[in-house]
Structures are given as C-alpha cells and as structure tokens.
Design a protein around this nucleic acid. Structure first.
Lengths: 222, 222
DNA sequence: CCAAAAGTGTTATTGATACACCCATGC
DNA sequence: GCATGGGTGTATCAATAACACTTTTGG
C-alpha cells in the first residue's frame, strides 16, 4: 500500500486546467483526447501529475505551455477536487486551474490531422473523463461570475481591439446583450483603457478607434 | 524516495483550518500549539493528514470536530498551498478551509489549564508555524470580502439575536462603523430574517426584538 | 446611394447615503 | 429622573437603465 504514515495516504497529485478562449462568439474550452485507460478515447481537461519540487502554479504553467504553446496568460487556481473515487485506479487529488487565452494568441495547429485536441463550446460538450464535467461547470461558473465584478476579460482580448469587440466578449461570456452606449460609458469611466490613435480600416463602414489596456493588472469593482 | 510514478511525486496531503469566531467584538481564529518538530512549541492552524478513502471535506470536518467539538457549521474550501519548501521535512500539500462557529456554540474549555489551544485576535497574532500566516491572511481576506456580498455572517450568529448584535458582527469583521437605520432597513429588506416574537429583557433599557434566519442557506447579493 | 458598423447624450428610475429624535426599561 | 440601548423616516445624491439618430466608410 502506498502510504507514508500509518493510516494516512499519499495520493497522487495532478493539476487539471480549464483553458478558455472565445472564438466566433462562443466560449470554448480546450479538451484533449485520452490515449490511455481509464477513460481511453474520452475527451478530458488537459492536466498532468505534479513533479518533484514543482509548485502547483508551476505545474499548471507547464501543462498550459505543453498543450497550448503559450505562456504569460491569465491563470488562477480554481478549486481542489479530492473525492476518493474520482479516479477508478487509485487515489488522485487534482488541483484545478482556470486559464484564459486570446484566440489570436493561439498558434494555428500544424496540420489538419490534429484530432487529439479540440476547442469545444462550453454549451455543447462531449462526455468527459473522470469528474471533469463537474470541474468544468465550476470553472465556467467562476468565470461568468468574475467577469461581472472584475476586468478579467483582459485575459481574452488581443493587444488592440475595438470597443465593439470588447462588448461582444462580455456578451459571449455572460450570454446576454448589453446596451452599447451604457457599455462604452462604463468602460471608459473605469480609466483602464487608452486609445491607441490607430483606426481599424477593414470593412465597408466607418473605421473604429482601437483601444488597449493601460496595464495587465486585474482589478475588482464594487 | 517516495514516488509512485517515475519522476512524479506523491506528497503528503493535509487539511488546515482557519476556524473563526467573534467574541468581545474581536474576530478570532483558533490556534493550536505544536507538540512536535518541526516548529515545536509554535502556534499553528489546526490541521491533519488526509486519511485513506476520506474526502477532503470529510477530513476538514473531522479536524473541525476534533478540535472544536462542534459540527454542522459553515465551512468552505479556501485554497490549496503547495510550495515545495513549505514543510521543511518533506513535500506536503495542504488544502486550506475556512470554518465559522458562533461563540455561543463553543463548549467551554474543561479546565483553565488548556494551554495548547487558543483563540487569537486576527490583528494580534503570534508567530505561526509553516506558511500558516500566509494561509490565514488569505482566509481573513476571503472572509472580509464575502461578508460584504453574502449573508455568510449567518455562520457566526447564535440562533436568536438582536439586530444590534448582527450589526456589531458586521462591524467587527469589516472593521468599520455602519449606520443603524440603513443597516436595519437593508437587513429586513433581504427577507432573510424573521421576528421571533420574543423580546430580550436583559438590561436597563428598552427590550429588543429577537430575530432569527429563515433558513441556513447562504445567499449572494449583487 | 446603399449597407454596415461606429459613435454619441439625455431622462427616468433605482438604490445608497446622510442624518436626529423619541421609546421602554432598570435602577 | 436618568442612563442605556431600541427603534423609526425623509431628503439628497449617485449609479444604473432605457432609449434613437447621425457619421464614416466601401462597394
């Protein structure tokens, strides 16, 4: 038996990531296909075992980079799931994380044949391995809540953007429509945005002013 | 070496609890004195190793009951701390919890000689073992924040109470004064309280109506 | 000149804040 | 009758919500 102290357990520790992005006005999450038992062939959240002398944050960062190819994005610890039966093989406790990646920052997949990684709309999920469905709904809940009292959408926007793109980002995540004038007023009132001076000229319409965030800091409102 | 898979670690898992109560208009947290190395003789948060086939919540519940003698109180998972160096002996990851106990629910200590357990004011803490100071400041931060957007103070109130006691509870936790009339208006407007009909007669003043919560549910505002 | 998205202010409503006096009781 | 905490209402201010038309461009 795999114990360190009499009667106490030393379970395996993993990190599992809910990596979100928004594309085509859909909130999407990264799923990877499991190559091994248990749940072979099922989709699951990307994750991995904690390595020796690696902090939890570092492990999450490593998994993020391995799977997405990006680093330096918004990430936070979500919750720790430790039900004794959540892994049918042996006791595994997982520390769940949330990460946000702007769609534009994602490297395009090298080939069309990548079938072991996908971005699934959170409202059209396949069956998931382990308790990953539960983890993911918790992650979505946290994300939706946090959007409304912080500027966490930072993590999903490209460097420069139109205010209408920012509004669309909010609308996609909270799944509701917002008033254009009130939205702009409020956003500019936060003082967190600055004009870049550049104007986007693409499209048969009046060009839009491009904005960017003054800093990467996440701020809480209320 | 204590590994389960090549290169992966199976650290010890503990739960550590920040158990809060309020007494004499001070927010207090339970500390226990460590009998063993490391940090022998230091004060620390109550905690313990996860047992085989025990869920994280169950472990936290067990520790709570062992140390405080109460169960069925408000408890929530806080955060997981996994720095590789946080325990000088070996790798230990701790899942931190918050618990709230009404002062009136606490069994009085059997003898005056109990010197291995204390309730310390959170603004006058001794040196703590491990990273418990960090855990505790995180817990206090969470508690203070949550008080202002939920009815989490439920967890600290006795069955029946005066509105002025409820106000005092809020003021103690957020460390600020509130307006009496506005406070009462808002509290009653939530619809979460009901009069008990009873009046408290103690004291040389007009007796106060006693209230209680309609349900134990925790509700979020905003 | 038509389509398409950008940009812009005012009013109404709601919620939050500030504030002072009388009441019921015990001693 | 005085000290103590209990109990009550209104006016102001700030924030939020509702709402429609003009502008600039490409085709």
């Amino acid at each position: 038996m795999n114990t360190k102290y009499e009667g106490f357990e030393t379970p395996g520790i993993t990190v599992d990531l809910s990596i979100f992005t928004v594309n085509e006005t859909r909130l999407k999450v990264m799923l990877v296909r499991r190559a091994e038992v248990p749940f072979q062939g099922y989709w699951s959240l990307p994750g991995g075992f904690l390595k020796t002398s690696e902090s939890l944050d570092a492990a999450a960062q490593r998994v993020l980079c391995e799977k997405s190819g990006v680093s330096d994005v918004y990430m936070e610890q979500l919750y720790t799931f430790g039900d004794p039966k959540r892994d049918p093989r042996s006791r595994v406790i997982t520390v769940a994380y949330i990460a946000l990646i702007p769609w534009q920052s994602l490297p395009q997949p090298a080939s069309e044949k990548v079938t072991d990684l996908t971005w699934a709309s959170v409202d059209a999920l396949p069956k998931l391995a382990f308790d990953h469905r539960e983890i993911l709904s918790y992650a979505v809940k946290r994300l939706r809540a946090k959007v409304s009292y912080s500027n966490i959408v930072y993590g999903l926007m490209p460097k420069q953007f139109r205010l209408s793109e920012l509004q669309s980002m909010y609308e996609t995540i909270i799944d509701d429509k917002l008033d254009k004038r009130n939205f702009r007023k409020q956003m500019l009132a936060t003082g967190l945005l600055k004009e870049t001076g550049k104007k986007e000229l693409a499209g048969a319409h009046r060009p839009a002013m491009l904005y960017q965030f003054k800093s990467k800091e996440i701020v809480f409102f209320n």
